[in-house]
Design a protein around this nucleic acid. Structure first.
Lengths: 367, 367
DNA sequence: TATTAACATGAATCCAACG
DNA sequence: ACGTTGGATTCATGTTAAT
């Protein structure tokens, strides 16, 4: 049995507190919480509208709670809630904060300044991010989480074996590939619109709570939103405390939590999705020096193509000049609708032809 | 030919400057560099000789102050070199900084405070990281890079199509999977030990330079180390300037650079954007008689527009009467914010619909 | 009912050249 | 400098409509 301290008994466990998170945290007893998961406003600074190439409009995060007039204002807010959070943490407690490049550097610096001790930064690699529609930057395909203990000396909880088991018996890495929250999991309001613009997937919280809490622990979420943290905590037999300002979110969260059932031990066995063969872009052979720009590739019928610095090929034959991917140039040379460039092209090693697919296998074996 | 400005002529191109990077950057002409790649140190090892502002010695017991003070020293260093770096950047220049959770949050916040404009944070996901031997944390399997322009308004270089080509025709994401630097690429000193503790892989710099520089650009690396930035820059036909303090690293870097050969111009060619093709006014199709005034164009949904002698269109549908450019009328018919008239409209040739873009291609091929 | 195609959408600091 | 206009730009996944 787990001992329940006198303080913990006074905690408003498994409820949602309405109001400002700083005030609400300050009203909680000091040193009473095992883990905090925080998804604060990111302070996005969006200018005009954005449209997809099909002219549909992107539903942007333009809510009032994400508006800050300057970095200074955002920093002040961040430092204040981090201070209040640190007070309610047990001495061996820890915190997770999630963010994007808009805010995460300021949050990370504030964490360090406040005396937290960073344990890892963890990258949530989204398997299905929104593309960059205008082609002006890299696809923003990840978010960053910082995992930190209350102090350098804290004996934080880390379930190494559990995470290893979740990861096909190899150590869990600092980058997690998980899909964004869509489909039935995505909560809708009465009108069928998304109830919250930034609902996090339960899979993310599942991994966080399995990895860094024990059953019965108290998990506090000061930016509760629609209650993903609470739902997963309840499911996994942890206690939660949520703090949220907006009526609409609280209402959705309450209904959600009422539907959640605590899982039996047996149900906690998570089935891992099978890993499909990772896609290896041909360009990576060039970047990694396995093939050099200018090097020649040969087709089965003796055509020659030159590799370029961006991983495209250039070749010519009676049909004309061709430029493009290994597949496109192969198809063009053959006059075929398509072509598998990996098996079509060979390079010369010690005078002998070697299929480029050999190099792809080499990369895959490293992954 | 690429124009060489007077300032650029005075730059110490393709050399290594020895000394403190701040002093050396301040000695370079203002606004003279296209790109900076920086891998700053993060273990400054200040704890040994730390003094408070009043010159009293730091009590080792006072951990919190020690930590804060050491952050303050690191921040001061960071803000100073970032300021010097920003001065030497051209107005449309950009910077990359790489780091880990020990320092990257402080660097990111300092970048924003200095007026840089973050474009992406990029995760270098290591395919072969060092495991966490003690099993006390997650395997630290990535490093973070920040890509930022000199200012919000800067027209930074981004070779979207080249990076897309490198990634098998899918737009490049913010997470890059690349192996760490090992094997033959890892430079050794006379005793066979690794010459530099954090040598970066050339594949990483390849992607950075292909993606965010043009041939002939000036790339500055203020923490040159063993010269990975210089080696890849030379290979890819970019100019470099390296700054390094340590004799030993400079020596290794010089020998390394001497071995590098620049690739042929043809192999440095990279997939070009459509925008780089000459602009063809629609009116030219009419002037050339490829389309006649009064001829009918058809929209995908069957609306009809008539070509007028000045190259404008006139059409009407339920939304009303419309007159203007091919783009404007297309957008008006669709009720869309914009429309690419070239791909929207078709004309009839031998009874079959042909996109008007076909005629544009015909003109372009004559140029 | 089964299969296929069309449609919808996600934390986004998302244009450039010309007059 | 500033306003106007041409015209370029998307990936994975889940849901709904159509065949």
């Amino acid at each position: 049995m787990r001992k329940t301290s006198t303080q913990a008994a006074k905690l408003p466990l498994n409820t949602i507190l309405q109001g400002d998170c700083i005030a609400q945290m300050n009203a909680l007893p000091e040193g009473s919480v095992d883990l905090i998961f925080a998804d604060p406003p990111y302070n996005l600074q969006l200018k005009g509208d954005l449209h997809r190439p099909d002219n549909s409009k992107v539903d942007a995060v333009d809510d009032a709670w994400d508006q800050f007039s300057s970095f200074a204002v955002y920093d002040k807010f961040t430092r204040e809630w981090l201070k209040a959070a640190r007070r309610v943490l047990k001495p061996d407690g820890a915190i997770w904060v999630i963010g994007s490049y808009h805010n995460i550097f300021r949050v990370g610096a504030a964490l360090q300044d406040a005396g937290y001790w960073i344990l890892n930064d963890v990258i949530w690699r989204k398997s299905n991010p929104m593309p960059n529609f205008r082609g002006k930057r890299l696809t923003n395909a990840h978010e960053t989480m910082i995992w930190a203990s209350k102090s350098e000396k804290a004996k934080y909880t880390f379930n190494y074996e559990a995470l290893k088991a979740l990861n096909e018996d190899v150590q869990m890495r600092s980058d997690w590939v998980l899909p964004i929250c869509t489909g039935h999991e995505r909560l809708k309001d009465a009108k069928g619109a998304k109830a919250h613009p930034t609902q996090k997937p339960e899979s993310l919280l599942h991994r966080v709570l399995i990895g860094t809490t024990k059953p019965g622990d108290v998990v506090l979420d000061p930016f509760f939103g629609t209650g993903t943290t609470g739902a997963v905590a309840k499911m996994l037999g942890r206690n939660f405390i949520g703090i949220e300002r907006e009526d609409a979110y609280i209402e959705v969260a309450r209904a959600r939590l009422a539907r959640v059932r605590k899982l039996d031990e047996a149900d906690l066995q998570v089935t891992q999705p099978k890993r499909s063969q990772p896609r290896v872009p041909f360009g990576q052979l060039v970047e990694r020096g396995m093939l050099r720009p200018g090097e020649k590739l040969y087709s089965p019928r003796g055509d020659v193509a030159k590799v370029r610095a961006d991983g495209t090929l250039a070749a010519s034959n009676a049909r004309g000049d061709h430029h493009g991917s290994i597949h496109q140039v192969g198809a063009a040379l053959e006059g075929a609708p398509s072509c598998n460039g990996w098996t079509y092209w060979t390079f010369r090693r010690e005078g002998k032809p070697v299929p480029i697919d050999y190099l792809r296998q080499q990369i895959r074996s490293e992954l």
